[in-house]
Amino acid sequence: MLRLPGFRVASPTTIAEAVAALAEPGARPIAGGTDLLPNLKHRLGAPTVLVQLSRLPLRDVEVRAGALCIGAGAVLADLAEHPLVRAHAPSLARAAGLVAGPTLRNLGTLGGNLHLDTRCRYVNQTPLWREALGGCLKSHGDRCHVVPGGQTCVAALSSDCAPALVALDATLTLHGPAGARTVALADYYCADGTAHTGRAAGELATEIRVPLAPGPRRETYVKWTVRKSIDFPLISIAMRFDLADDAVAAPIVAARVVVGALASTPKLVRKLDALRGQRLDDPATADAIAAQVGAQCKPLPNLPYDADYRRAVLPVHVRRGIAALVAAGENHG
């Protein structure tokens, strides 16, 4: 039996009330609670007040001003099936539908998924287990068990939606005491597993915006886990290809590949400019992308699975994801 530590709860009904409640020292926001509550049950964090976001009017999904606009409180199960999300951001719909299992997707929200705490095999354990090892950078200690001698926490961001949204050039709007600000999600995450988002303590994420595609596009999200449900990703790849016309074999105009579940930031794969003019159905294209992913992304022994295996199969899953896009042909989205 895992009990929660003591805390108070606030249940604001407006964004202004929520921001005011979050100003209290030790306050933390709780959306679906599917990540925060298990962590608190393992005594990872000790908030004095949980600010419940479920009563805020943040669930709308609409197309506005050239962008798909999604309230941070939109529930993952709804996003996975939402006609606008499936039409304008099919890789996000796919990622949302692959988070955890069906019952957790009925609680979890998009804002919550983007703010999952980072995970590590040395952190997401019972307090007794962690203390037996002397703690670590993220858990009452001063060393890293993943990277011996490491001074920066490399716990992994295990969000399925974050890589998909970074690949789609999404932005995130936050409300705080000083008003609202909007940041590119690609710039939002920091390379420190103990403080991995750009959210200031009193801020509240309110809206995610995905710019509508300027032209024909293919996009996908690839997730691999040991079990086919429930698990956090062990391999996580978002890919987006803007094409010259709507045939899957059309020349590539732009490509964006983002890999998740490595360390605390989604990793944008670089050196893909040579793909311009290449075609997705040409095996050399998949080989070139897989080679860049393999060269630039090195899974660490921070997740509960063999890191060497994850390194070896990462390029394989890139090829499979592209093969699935090609096989789908014109029946995409």
């Binding site: 039996m1 895992l2 679906g32 609670g33 599917t34 509550l37 298990p38 049950k41 393992h42 199960a77 955890a100 299992g101 069906p102 019952t103 957790l104 009925n106 609680l107 429930i230």
Partner: peptide, 21 residues
């Protein structure tokens, strides 16, 4: 007690959710 097993599933407004979370 941490959302993995589903034994605590109930319906909240008609949707299946883990009541431990």
């Amino acid at each position: 007690d941490k959302g993995d097993c589903g034994a605590c599933t109930v319906q909240l407004d008609g949707k299946a959710v883990p009541s431990c979370l």
